[in-house]
Computed example of a mutant assay.
Amino acid sequence: MIPSWTEWKRYPKAARGENIEAPIGPGIYEVRYRSSGALFAFGAVDNLALALSVLQVAPKSLTSWFARREAAPPDLDYRTCATATKADAKTAAERMIGRRETYLSGAA
């Protein structure tokens, strides 16, 4: 069976009580900036839900002598691709990376 990607979903914000919708199993995840579509994170993991939940998306706080302000977290989208095993996820991720490199080099 060929794994397929889910639709892009808005990355949840904990302050609003939103939740991640992802399988509790092996697969690949991709996170991108909503505004530009640039890649934020990508990986092949044992547990998609856990990997997305611990992803560091909150920026570090900015402190100064006069005030302490928290910067807003980036606006992100995510999608997942479930696989049967982590080995299958790694293989699929390597193929995707190879295809992306070929495309960006102009050979495609």
Rank of each mutant, 00 (worst) to 15 (best):
R95A: 15
A89G: 08
A87Y: 11
I97T: 14
C81G: 03
K90S: 08
A82R: 13
T91P: 01
A89Q: 04
C81M: 15
F66M: 00
E70W: 07
A89L: 11
A67V: 02
R68T: 07
A92M: 13
P73Q: 04
I97W: 07
R68M: 08
A82G: 05
T83M: 10
D75E: 13
E70H: 05
R68H: 02
I97L: 15
T80W: 05
M96K: 12
A84K: 11
T80E: 06
P74Q: 02
P74E: 02
Y78Q: 08
F66W: 05
K86M: 10
R69C: 05
K90W: 11
A82V: 05
A93E: 07
A71S: 13
P73C: 00
Y78A: 01
A84D: 15
T85P: 13
A87V: 15
A67E: 06
F66K: 03
R68A: 11
K90D: 14
R68F: 00
D75T: 08
T80P: 03
Y78C: 04
T80H: 06
T85N: 07
E70R: 09
A82K: 09
I97V: 15
T85V: 13
P74N: 03
A87I: 15
I97D: 04
F66V: 03
R79T: 04
A84N: 01
D77W: 11
R79G: 09
A72G: 01
T80K: 08
A67G: 02
P74A: 04
R95Y: 07
E94C: 11
D75N: 07
